[in-house]
Design a binder for these strands. Structure first.
Length: 250
DNA sequence: GCGACAG
DNA sequence: ATCTTGTCGC
């Protein structure tokens, strides 16, 4: 595997540095190429879990787009898992690396997200991604891709479904229902707030579904979406609104 | 063939 | 994702 493949797989960094693998990532030049990459990396997903039950730090990742659609800002915020206070953050401004295609979403945001991860000083123990992990047509959503590339435990928390069927979970926070795609359970529809639309939780890498759901509940003491996602969302939006200059901050 | 389709 | 007006509730 060459250094340029960092954004694709491997890219394991030395302790405490280059979380995103360093260097630039070359996105696939076609849909067929992207599908081939997913096919190749999918077997590398670690489904053993259960993953950290009491991580000290948890990272949130999110991306915001300019209305023109030709510019984006990727943000990563690292929170103290106990106090939910932000202890580190980084942003990267750039351009979408791929057209938006359902199922190939990761190729669009991955380069910028990895660049932002490179800007971190603190190495998070878990990545909470804005999108799906195994709840994906080929079981390799953004959370899986990001997990495999960084080697870190990762989970996906989506606001809307991509694949699968489910029954409405109970109305109380903590209620849930399995998200099934055919015969397999690919995730969990979890109610994080009483009477509020549930979120879709799925495993990304090195995590079990039960633990993933538990971690999401720990991150949603007062809002529907994880605190990690919320802080990252604010950060990338601000970065987009602020300096029109490109490059990396953090 | 037609609709659905993370962000 | 982003745009977009008002509305309901803590």
């Amino acid at each position: 595997m060459t250094p340029d493949d960092a954004g694709e797989a491997g890219g394991r960094s030395a302790a405490g540095e280059r979380l995103g693998g360093g260097g630039r990532v070359d996105p696939p030049g076609s849909v067929a190429g992207a599908l081939a990459v997913q096919e190749r990396l999918r077997p590398l997903v670690d489904l053993v879990g259960p993953g950290p039950t009491a991580p000290a730090t948890v990272a949130g990742l999110d991306v915001a787009y300019a209305e023109s659609g030709d510019r984006l800002a990727a943000a990563v915020t690292v929170l103290d898992a106990r106090t939910l206070a932000v202890v580190d953050e980084a942003v990267s401004v750039g351009r979408p690396a791929f057209d938006y295609v359902p199922g190939l979403f990761a190729f669009r945001e991955l380069p910028a997200l990895l660049d932002a991860l490179d800007g971190l000083t603190v190495r998070p123990e878990l990545l909470v991604c804005d999108g799906h992990g195994l709840a994906h047509p080929r079981r390799f959503g953004l959370a899986c891709h990001l997990g495999v590339v960084t080697g870190l435990p990762a989970i996906g928390v989506g606001k809307t479904p991509l694949v699968g069927q489910w029954s409405p979970p109970g109305e109380r926070r903590g209620s849930w229902a399995p998200l099934r795609d055919g015969d397999e359970v690919v995730g969990r529809v979890l109610r994080t707030r009483d009477g509020v639309k549930p979120v879709f939780v799925s495993v990304g890498h090195r995590m079990g579904l039960d633990n993933a759901a538990a971690r999401v509940l720990a991150l949603t003491p007062r809002h529907r979406l994880p605190e990690t996602t919320r802080t990252a969302d604010r950060l990338c939006r601000d970065a987009l609104a602020g300096g029109a200059r490109g490059g990396r901050r953090g």
